[in-house]
Nucleic acid binder design. Sequence first.
DNA 1: CATGAATGAGAATTCATTCAT
DNA 2: TATGAATGAATTCTCATTCAT
Lengths: 203, 203, 203, 203
Amino acid sequence: MARTRAAEIAREATRRELLGAALEVFGDKGYASTTISDIVGAAGVTQGTFYLYFKNKENIFSELLNEYRTLMISGLLNTDFTAVKTRKDWLKMADRVAVFLVDHIETHGTFMRLFIAEAETIGSKFSEESYAFADGVIQEIGRMLSHGIRMGLLRKVDVETVALSAFGALKEAVRQSCFQDPSIEPEEIIPRVIRSLARLVLK
Amino acid sequence: MARTRAAEIAREATRRELLGAALEVFGDKGYASTTISDIVGAAGVTQGTFYLYFKNKENIFSELLNEYRTLMISGLLNTDFTAVKTRKDWLKMADRVAVFLVDHIETHGTFMRLFIAEAETIGSKFSEESYAFADGVIQEIGRMLSHGIRMGLLRKVDVETVALSAFGALKEAVRQSCFQDPSIEPEEIIPRVIRSLARLVLK
Amino acid sequence: MARTRAAEIAREATRRELLGAALEVFGDKGYASTTISDIVGAAGVTQGTFYLYFKNKENIFSELLNEYRTLMISGLLNTDFTAVKTRKDWLKMADRVAVFLVDHIETHGTFMRLFIAEAETIGSKFSEESYAFADGVIQEIGRMLSHGIRMGLLRKVDVETVALSAFGALKEAVRQSCFQDPSIEPEEIIPRVIRSLARLVLK
Amino acid sequence: MARTRAAEIAREATRRELLGAALEVFGDKGYASTTISDIVGAAGVTQGTFYLYFKNKENIFSELLNEYRTLMISGLLNTDFTAVKTRKDWLKMADRVAVFLVDHIETHGTFMRLFIAEAETIGSKFSEESYAFADGVIQEIGRMLSHGIRMGLLRKVDVETVALSAFGALKEAVRQSCFQDPSIEPEEIIPRVIRSLARLVLK
DNA sequence: CATGAATGAGAATTCATTCAT
DNA sequence: TATGAATGAATTCTCATTCAT
C-alpha cells in the first residue's frame, strides 16, 4: 500500500524522463527521423519501458504538443489589452508582448520549433492540432487590433488580413532568429519586428 | 561515345517521368514518408531504373528544388519596380505581384508547398537551400520598399523587418489558403493581404 | 514454519482466482494467444503475483488440464454398464450417457474445448496428456461394447475400431454443436448421435 | 523482354520454395509457434524476400490451405457412388475410399494435419475455412448413405448423424495413426475403421 | 538501358520474467 | 505475500540499394 506511493513517484519520474528525452531528440532530429530507440537511449531506459508509458511515437509527441499548448495559451491570455487607451499604451503593450515572446523562446524554444515544424509538414498527423493553435493566436491578435481601432488609436485596417500577416511575420522572425541564422538573436529581431508592426498600424 | 540522338531523348523522357512522379508523390505524402517505391510506382518504371538516374531520394528532391528555384527567381525578376513613381503605381504593382503569386500557386503550388515544408522541417538536408531562397525574396521585397521610400511614397519604415514581415505574411497566407483550409481560396486572400500591406506602408 | 490458517486460505483463494481467470481466457483466445498479462488482468492481480503461484503459462495450463481430467474420469466411472442385460437396458444406458455428456458440456464446456483443442494442436506440450485421456475414454467405450457383445445384445463388431469411431463421432458432435455452429444445440445433436450409434451396434 | 520469362520462372521457383518450406515448418511446429524466420531459414532466402511473395504468416498459411482444399476435393469427387448397386459394390467402394485415404495420407499427410489442427484451434483465423471443408465432406458421406438406403442396401439410419459420426470416426483414426501413436500404421487402421462402419450400416 | 529478384540493416512492438520495495 | 516498474530477447515488417540477366 505504502508501496504504491513510491511506485507512483518512480512512475512519474520515468515518464518525465521520457518526455524530456523525447523533446530533446525531436528538437534535434525532427519527428520523422527520431526513433523510439533514440528516445529511450536519451532517457536511459530500455525499449520495453517506453511502451509502458506511451503507445507509440505519435502518442508521446502528441503529449508533448498538448503540454506546450497549455503553456503557451496560458501565457498569451495574460496579455490584457483592454487597458490600452493611448498610443503610448499600445506601444508599451507591443513591447510587453515582445518581451514575453523572447522569454518564451528562451524557455520553450524547442517546443515552439516542433510546433511550427509539424504545422508545415506535409501529411503530418499533428497539422490539425497545430492549425487550431495558430488560428487561436491569430484571432487573439485580431481582437487586439479591433480594440485599438475602436479606441481610435489605429488605422482602419482589414483586421483579418493584418492579424494573419502579423502572425506570419512573427513566425518568420522566430524562424530566422532561432532555427536558421545563429547570428541573428531573437532578443534583437523580435522586438524590432513587433515595434515595426505596431507602428505601421498606428494612426 | 556520342550517344545516339534517340537514346538521349528517351533518357531525358524517363528522367522527366521520374521527376514528375516524384513531385506528385512528395506533394502528397511529404518527403519523409515518400519511398523510392512510391516514386517508381507513380512513374511506371522499376526500382533499378531509379538508380540509373538519381543517386537516392535526397538527390531527386534536390533536383526538384533546383528546378523550382530557377522558375521562381525568373518570375520574380520580371517585376520591375523601378518604374514605380506614384501612389497609384505602387498599388498597381502590389496588385500585379498578387496576380503573379496567385498564378504561381495555381501552376506551381506543389513545388511551393514542398519548398515551404522542407524549410521548416527540422534536420532537413534542404534547409540551406530553402533559406537561401527565402533570403533572396526578402531582399527583393526590401529593395522594393527602399525604392518606395526613396521616391517619397512610403513611410520611413525599418526596411529589414518590414520586408521580413511581408515575406512571413505572404507565406502564412499561402499556407492557410493552400495547405490548411480548403474553404479559403488563394485568389481571395492573397490579394487582400498584399493590398493591406501595401497600404500600411504608404504615407 | 506453520503458516497461519488465514494466510493459507488467502493463498488458496488467489490461486483459485488465477486458475479461474486462466480457464476463462484460455477458452476465449486459445492457449497460444493468451498472455500472462491477460490472465492476471482477468484475475485482478499483478504480473509478479502470477509467478508466486505458477512457474509459467505451461504450468498453469497443465494444472487446469489435471483438474479437468480428475473431474471427467470420476464422472465417467459412474456409468455402470455391467447392469445392462437387455436391448432396452442398452438404449437406456445410451440415453444416460447422452444426458451426462450434455450436462457435462454445460458445466465444463470450456475445459472440454481446451482439452480437445490442445490434443489437436501441433507441437503442443500437452498432447501426451490429452492422448492419454482420449485413450482412457476409448477403452471405456470398448469395455461397454465388449460387455454388450458378451451379453448377446450387440453384433459382433470389431470392438477396437468401433470404440475409436464412437469416440471420434462424439468429439465431432461436440465440436460442431459447441465450437462451430451456434445454431446447433448440444442437447439436440448429442443424444441423436449417441442413439444412432447405439442402434447401429444392436443386433 | 526475354528477361521477363527468366524472372518469371525464378519468381515461381522462390514462391514454391517458400510454400514448401512453410508446409514443412508448419507441420513440424504448428502454425502459432512458427515464425517467418523459421520459414525463410528453411527456404534458404532472407526475411525481406518473404514479403515479396506473401503479406504475412496468415497469408502464406491461407495459400497452403487453399491448395490442399483443391487437391482434396478433386480427389473426393472421383468417388462415384452412383454405380453402387449391391452389398458387394458397397463394400468395394468402402475399400476404395480407404485406399484413397491411406494414399492421401502418405502424400499429403502434413497438409491434412494442418487442416485438422487449425479447425480445432481456438481463435484460429482459419476455422471458417476448415469448417466449410469438413461440412463438404460430411455432406458427401451423407449422399453416399442416402444412395445406399435408396438402393435398399443399408439400414434406415439417421443419415445426418451417421454421416457426422463417420467423419468424426475417420478423423480420429487419422489422428491416432498419423499424429499420435507412431506404432499404429494408417494402412492398418484406416481400412479397418472404414470396413467396420460400412458393415454397421449394411442391412 | 531496363528489369525486378534478392538482400540485410533497422525500426516498431510484444511479452515472459525478474526484482527491489 | 503482493506489487508493478523495468528488462531484453524475440518477432514482424519496411525499404534503400545492389546486381545478375
